[in-house]
Design a protein around this nucleic acid. Structure first.
Lengths: 231, 231
DNA sequence: CGCGAGCTTGACGTTGTTCAACTAGAGTGG
DNA sequence: CCACTCTAGTTGAACAACGTCAAGCTCGCG
């Protein structure tokens, strides 16, 4: 984990992002003076569930996984984390611990922003606050659908969902599958590693996907969506 | 479902709530002119998952359940809904459908506020926006812990959790258990009705709770928390 | 060349759902 | 006032889904 000491190091990529668009000059300087840029390497922890969150992270680039910790052998992966997203916003607005953990799946570049600065920005600038609310709204919806998957679907449907989600992110231009182990994928589907492997083999046997080393190619989107729908 | 046509009908209880504290006079009038008060009876639907959400609901009084729909025989209850809470905020800030359903468990009095009015308020008034963000933050944390329960605990632990949660709300002064069926309770624990009944009987046999008609009294909080912790 | 981590496979056990039958109380109509 | 029905609750037995375990495999790396 390499730290840039000069705040301006992350001015260019960081403050360019859409949510920082409508800041007033003094707000920009507030943001600029309260942050520092950090590079995380694969496997490093960006946020630890339950730990005190001293700052909000704004991801510039790279790929991570956001997950709920389980016992030693199992987590549940909520979502991928990629450029343009905030981590640990809740630190700035209430609880001061992270409700989830985040680990880098590839090299991740992020801006750390002091949580008080984010809270101030939200109070000063309604548009910024509105953008934060929109983000919360979208992530809440994601959490509700995650709960829906967990309660309503069984292995087949959950695995189909996971593959469709991961594939969609990959189509946005991020290399995804090559950065994931079988265990990562099983944690996205919420099944054991062994079950995940068997499911993948079955999908391949049925011609729905193609397993090429670590990479996975979806051959039959329609059929997978059908499986997802049926649960 | 009785509707009050005069907006002022819900001025007194509605605009008294903490989140409306710091509104400016013109903002108050904006809020006042964009709302109407409604009374829902037991069993009626306040919000329907997937349906278009035309307005945000602010609950004045009563008890409801917020849940994710499953197949015909099963839902998953996320939380109780009680006075002072917003429903369907996401309508105002992004997606225009409800991500969950809400049904009245007792008679519920609520203010319906036009979603555009809520969005405007959030943009005009940073403090109001901040309060909305705090609410989102808390509810997000709840969703993360819900996911954690679903993935990490089995029946015993989930039922203990459900009882501790319901009991905590009851201790805030709301009659809870008498308004819940066995199916409601099982949907909070995320198990089948039959399993829930067997679990409750077991807990009673072990002296942890006392089943008195519909009411449930927790006798051994410590022990239940222990069961919850162990999963 | 050998070691270890991740991957794969099949046999087995546990958990929790489903099903079917039975009970109790609450309303309904004769 | 009594059948009659309907719903919610209860019980145990059979069954399915899925995790766990144990063993073997593969590949990259020291």
């Amino acid at each position: 984990m390499r730290t840039y000491t000069t705040p301006d190091d992350c001015t260019l990529p960081g403050l360019d992002a859409p949510c920082f668009r409508d800041l007033l000059p003094e707000e920009i300087s507030l943001a600029r003076e309260s942050k520092t840029m950090v590079v995380f390497h694969k496997g490093e922890t960006l946020a630890k569930q339950g730990a005190f969150a001293s700052s909000v992270l704004f991801i510039i680039d790279g790929l991570g996984k956001r997950y709920i910790e389980g016992d030693a052998q199992r987590n549940y992966n909520i979502s991928l984390v990629k450029g343009g997203e905030f981590l640990g916003l809740s630190a700035a607005f209430g609880s001061n611990t992270y409700p989830y953990s985040v680990t880098a799946l590839s090299e991740v570049t992020a801006c750390l922003i002091e949580k008080d600065a984010v809270a101030s920005l939200a109070k000063l600038n309604g548009t910024f606050a509105h953008s934060i609310i929109s983000r919360y709204c979208r992530s809440s919806n994601m959490l509700y659908t995650a709960i829906s998957k967990l309660t309503n679907k069984q292995m087949n449907g959950r695995m189909a969902d996971a593959l469709l989600y991961l594939d969609a992110v990959q189509h946005e231009g991020q290399a995804v599958f090559v950065n994931l182990s079988r265990k990562d994928i099983s944690d996205f589907a919420g099944v054991s590693t062994e079950s995940a492997i068997k499911l993948l083999k079955n999908f391949e046997k049925d011609g729905l996907i193609s397993l090429e080393e670590k990479d996975i190619v979806l051959l039959q989107h329609q059929a997978l969506e059908e499986i997802s729908r049926k649960g």
